[in-house]
């Protein structure tokens, strides 16, 4: 409390208290929305995961870790986890490396830079459901243009999205197509942040070609960007849902069953909310683990402070 209390007639509160009141008032709407839409539902999901709650069924019972025990023996879920892992294992590295390659290629010259940046970025802003339909036509086994071309070349024509051998690969290809423009612009932002003097210094210091420059300057200085892009690519790939929902619905024969699709099915089709919440929790833990990896372990290696 300030000693000036009472000496000034109008502001009856000290400046500090006024500021605190203003701060709370400005935080209030966001806090209410945060509690109602994020914190409480998230906590509810955590609680649900330990119940057998089913929409429309009798009152939920606390069943402890039973949902998680079920998950261990659930063959469908195991398939789903394996598929998700495979999908992430293809899409994330390909998006990172492809995005880096495209960024270097587009930035290497002035001509066509804006045009090609737009071309590769286009899938990021396109309605993914609609583009999934376009892919379905493109990959259609009999009338699709891709197989028509393969046929014309005398090559085999796989059932891209309807064979369990190729469906995950096809989805991964679409996933890479959707993500690569995003990673590319992140890398471009990282590239423009590299001081040009360093390239001049590298040239004088004996860097003779593009590879020397890349090793000595570009790659190390892109470190923070690369780390970030890796993590965000992993998380984005982990979230695959739209293409599965539109194109395969997990099929054929669960060959494209992925984590969020399983969670959606359990929760909103079979209405087994407790089990679905348990899957969601596992999903959350994986995401948090990736973030922790970023901040705790790897950050130290790429920031040169």
């Amino acid at each position: 409390m300030s000693l000036a209390l009472g000496t000034a007639a109008r502001p009856r509160l000290s400046a500090g208290a006024m500021e605190a009141l203003a701060g709370w008032a400005l935080m209030l709407p966001a806090t209410i929305a945060f509690l109602a839409m994020l914190l409480l539902p998230t906590l509810a999901t955590v609680l649900l995961a330990f119940t057998d709650y089913e929409l429309g069924a009798a009152a939920p019972a606390w069943i402890g870790l039973a949902n998680f025990a079920d998950m261990l023996t659930d063959r469908g879920l195991r398939t789903s986890a394996r598929n998700t892992l495979a999908y992430v294992g293809i899409v994330a590295p390909a998006s990172v490396l492809g995005g880096l390659g495209l960024a270097l290629l587009v930035e290497a010259g002035a001509r066509g830079r804006a045009f090609f940046r737009a071309v590769f970025f286009l899938p990021v802003v396109s309605l993914s459901v609609a583009m999934a339909s376009a892919w379905q036509y493109l990959l259609h086994p009999t009338i699709g243009p891709l197989n028509a071309e393969l046929r014309a070349l005398g090559l085999p024509t796989p059932f891209w999205l309807s064979s369990s051998d190729t469906v995950l690969l096809s989805l991964a290809a679409i996933g890479i197509w959707e993500n690569i423009g995003f990673t590319m612009v992140l890398f471009m932002a990282g590239l423009t942040a590299i001081p040009r003097e360093l390239y001049a210094a590298a040239a004088v210091d004996g860097a003779r070609g593009a590879w020397d420059r890349f090793r000595l300057v570009t790659w190390p200085l892109l470190g923070p960007t690369t780390l970030f892009v890796v993590v965000i690519s992993l998380v984005r790939a982990l979230r695959v849902f739209d293409t599965v929902a539109v194109l395969t619905q997990g099929g054929p024969n669960k060959a494209s069953e992925v984590l969020l699709w399983t969670m959606y099915q359990e929760g909103f089709t079979y209405l087994r909310l407790g089990y679905s919440a348990a899957i969601t929790l596992v999903f959350l833990v994986v995401v948090l683990a990736l973030m922790a990896l970023q901040t705790r372990v790897l950050d130290r290696r790429v920031h040169y402070g």
Partner: peptide, 26 residues
């Protein structure tokens, strides 16, 4: 602004950043 609870609020924001929108959906 400086107000009691600011650090907690900012901590909540940082934590919230980690939660994908699928989690509170159910």
């Amino acid at each position: 602004l400086r107000f009691p609870g600011r650090d907690i609020a900012f901590g909540a924001v940082m934590l919230g950043l980690l939660v994908p929108p699928h989690v509170p959906a159910l």
